[in-house]
Each structure stands twice: as structure tokens, then as C-alpha cells.
Lab assay of single mutants.
Amino acid sequence: MQRVNMIMAESPGLITICLLGYLLSAECTVFLDHENANKILNRPKRYNSGKLEEFVQGNLERECMEEKCSFEEAREVFENTERTTEFWKQYVDGDQCESNPCLNGGSCKDDINSYECWCPFGFEGKNCELDVTCNIKNGRCEQFCKNSADNKVVCSCTEGYRLAENQKSCEPAVPFPCGRVSVSQTSKLTRAETVFPDVDYVNSTEAETILDNITQSTQSFNDFTRVVGGEDAKPGQFPWQVVLNGKVDAFCGGSIVNEKWIVTAAHCVETGVKITVVAGEHNIEETEHTEQKRNVIRIIPHHNYNAAINKYNHDIALLELDEPLVLNSYVTPICIADKEYTNIFLKFGSGYVSGWGRVFHKGRSALVLQYLRVPLVDRATCLRSTKFTIYNNMFCAGFHEGGRDSCQGDSGGPHVTEVEGTSFLTGIISWGEECAMKGKYGIYTKVSRYVNWIKEKTKLT
């Protein structure tokens, strides 16, 4: 034993070699072989497995989906700052455009905790909710729209109204504003409101030439003092309507412009014939205590009207009353817009006519005020429907199939267009061939041609 100890002390290297040989010859039971080890760690190889990531292109799944990435790591994937920024906006807080917040056709661009709407022409605001041009839906104005110097929408209202708090709607500024039905039992019968379409306001006024200088022999019209197929109006439903009495009662109609003036057809009036105007009328054979009678003290036909040349060209006249009318729910003026808007309103496509005229061709006159909704007829169809001249200051309205029309005794009465609950004068009943005849239409004086003249002559002093 002493000898062994001496050998170990003198030859430590020998001992180490012996131990190493023993270990190498022993069977290893701690580690699995290569094949079995792979069965336990069965993990798919990654895209760049075996390579240094710093030297390969980034992978979106590896960089940002398996674990949260930084902007720089995302930049490695896209290799483009702009594309990385677009991805980053949604990656950080989701897609803010998912709810489609942009209105009126706006395009949404996502941002971090926010979004941006790219608005089409005519709109602005956070969600493109603000109209900035009158060309689109009248700028959301209830009545009139004008573009300011910086191309912003400025709404306005006709006389007797003021802008509401929203700067879009119009509200009454006087007790009985024009064009409004205020009798409670008839307010439910107000005709369907007309909503502004998209309009090209630059070209809204037709490029028409008034044929002022045409000389033409007097034409022989049949029954051209021209509501057939209409309905009984309720008291106060058309408070701007008046009836004219002269040699015979209810020979023509008219509309209240203001307390002192009536507008009617020029062919209705004769110099030297006494005319009485009755406002607030409903049943011409009954006294309903809503009527107001006034005498006409002055007749002003349009300066281009000449019955000797043509009885229905420039067929418009103004009547001055001896005493002002007292405005109330049964006696209310009709609204008159400017030339541009009167023309736009007419193009809405349908209007209402009213009167006490004959209820059928050569038949009896109506006792109760009649009204009828009539569609506008395109000019080409209008011209083809008659052998008589249709001037540019006239328009056609009615039904091709016949059966409904204005008729004798309705002449001078109103053709009105309702705009968001307020009625505007767009025409004056003038003439036609018979009444409600198939293929024939009622012919009306186009008020847009005469609004400046009306307003100039009827100013209240």
C-alpha cells in the first residue's frame, strides 16, 4: 500500500490518463441519441435557420407576430419608411378606419389613436360632414345658397324668414311668412316636400332668348283662358290664391305678392273693366268669414305684352289694390325667389296649380277651390304637342294621358313649387288646347323671366 501511494504521488498524470480511459469505455446513459432527441424537440425550422439574422431580410411573422416588435424591426421587413409607417399605425392600436367614419364618399386613412378623412370636392370637416359648395344638395341650405369668396357655403332665406341657429334652416321672422300653410287642420295635408338634388348652379339658368321682337298675326285659340281631375282644397291650404270678379264672377285667378299687390295673367284683364279681388276665398257660393274683398285701382301688364300681336306672350300683369290686405292664416303671400332659384325650383319637376275653373272641358265651374299636382314636361315634348308657338318664356306641365289639367277660369292662378315646406311661385296658368285632352298640356308663363320686374313694381313704400 505504501508503494502504491508513492507511485500516485510521483505520477499524477498517469492516474488522470487511467481515469479518462475508464470513462470513455463506459456506456453513456444520461444523453439520448440524435434521433430520439429530435422526437422530443420537434420544432419547425425557421426561415433563416442556421444563418445569422443580421444578414437576412426581415420576416413579418418572425419579427412582429411571434413577439412584439419595434418600429426598427418592422422597418427591416418593409425596407421602406412609408410602408412601415402605414403598417405601424394599425399594428400599434388597430384600424381606426374600420367603422368607416368618413361621410359623403370620403376616404379614410388610419393613424395612431386617430384617423384622417380625405374629402371629395365640396366637403370638409373631420368626417367630411361639412358642405362647402352650393353645387351639392344646395349646400344643405333649406332655401338659398351662395358661395363666399373663400368658396364656403353661405345660406340665406327669402323675405319674412331668418336663418336658424344651425345656419342652414329657415324659420319665420314674421307672423305670416310667405308660402307657408298655417291653418292647423290643413298642415297635415301639406304636399310632399321637395329635397334639393345635386345641381350645376353655374349652368342652372337656361341660355334662352326671349323672342321679344317676333311679330306674329293673332292666333285663334280655343278655350285658351284655361282644375280638371283635381281635388277639393281645404280652407287655408292655398292662402296665396285669390279669385278675380268682373263682368262675371271667378273669371280668373291670381296670387298675393304682398298686402297691396296681386300677380295674374295679362290676358285676364281689360282696361276700363272694374275688377274686384277676393282673398281668403274657399267656396265661392258661401260666406265663410275668411274672405277679404278689395278693388283694383291700377293694372300693370308687362311692358312687352301686346294682345294685338299675341294674347299669351309675356302673359303676366300686376294688380294694385285700393287697401292693403290683412295677412292671416287664410290670406298669405306666395314666396318669389330670384331668377336663378325660381328656375331651379321649376326644374324640380312638379308643381301645384289651383283655381275655381271648370271641372271638365266646357263644363261647370268649381264651387270649392280645386288643386292638382302636375309634372313638368320637357321642352321637346311640349313643342311636338301643339302647332302653336311655345315661346321661351312659357313652359308645359300636365299629363300625356289627359284627364287632369287646369281649365277655363283658372287662368292667372299660381303654379307653385314647394321647397322644404315653403311654396314659391314658378308659373302662372296661361293657356292650353281644350282641357285635359290626351297628348295636350297646360301652358304656363315662366315666372323666372319676370321676377325682377315683379319685385321692382310691387315694392311697398
Rank of each mutant, 00 (worst) to 15 (best):
Phe348Ile: 08
Leu163Arg: 04
Gly253Ala: 14
Ser187Asn: 05
Cys382Leu: 03
Leu41Glu: 11
Ser329Ile: 04
Asn38Glu: 13
Arg46Met: 11
Pro239Leu: 01
Pro175Leu: 08
Pro172Phe: 05
Tyr450Ile: 01
Thr16Arg: 09
Leu41Arg: 09
Asp223Leu: 12
Asp131Asn: 05
Gly357Ala: 12
Asp405Met: 13
Asp378Pro: 11
Gly50Gln: 13
Leu60Asp: 15
Glu193Ile: 15
Ser220Arg: 06
Gln143Glu: 02
Asn42Lys: 09
His400Ile: 12
Val199Ala: 05
Ser423Gln: 07
Ala9Lys: 07
Phe87Ser: 15
Lys387Gly: 08
Lys234Gln: 07
Ile344Glu: 11
Asn100Val: 05
Glu116Ser: 04
Arg449Met: 14
Thr158Ala: 10
Asn138Val: 05
Lys39Asn: 09
Val368Gln: 15
Val242Pro: 00
Glu116Val: 03
Glu76Gly: 15
Phe238Val: 05
Val326Gln: 14
Arg298Ser: 09
Gly355Ala: 13
Lys293Cys: 05
Leu318Gly: 00
Cys407Asp: 03
Lys68Cys: 04
Asn328Val: 00
Ser187Val: 11
Asn151Thr: 10
Lys247Tyr: 05
Phe78Thr: 03
Ser217Cys: 06
Pro101Lys: 03
Trp261Gly: 00
Trp88Gln: 15
Asn36Phe: 08
Gly349Trp: 05
Ile297Asn: 05
Leu425Ser: 00
Val181Met: 12
Trp240Tyr: 03
Asp110Asn: 14
Pro414Thr: 10
Lys146Gln: 12
Glu27Arg: 06
Asn100Phe: 08
Ser49His: 12
Leu24Phe: 12
Gly409Phe: 10
Val416Met: 09
Val331Lys: 00
Glu231Val: 11
Asp200Pro: 14
Thr158Gln: 11
Lys126Ile: 09
Gly398Gln: 05
Tyr47Ser: 11
Val273Glu: 14
Ala37Met: 12
Val326Asn: 08
Tyr161Ala: 02
Ala436Gly: 13
Leu41Gln: 15
Asn80Thr: 14
Glu193Tyr: 12
Leu367Trp: 12
Val227Asn: 09
Thr417His: 02
Glu116His: 02
Glu288Ile: 05
Ala207Pro: 14
Thr190Pro: 08
Ser99Asn: 13
Gly236Pro: 04
Val447Ile: 11
Ser187Thr: 14
Ala250Met: 06
Glu418Cys: 06
Ala366Trp: 07
Lys152Trp: 05
Val277Arg: 00
Arg298His: 05
Ser25Pro: 08
Thr461Ala: 15
Gly272Ala: 08
Leu376Glu: 03
Arg384Gly: 10
Met437Asn: 08
Tyr115Phe: 09
Tyr391Ala: 13
Arg75Phe: 07
Ala265His: 02
Glu10Asp: 15
Asn343Gly: 10
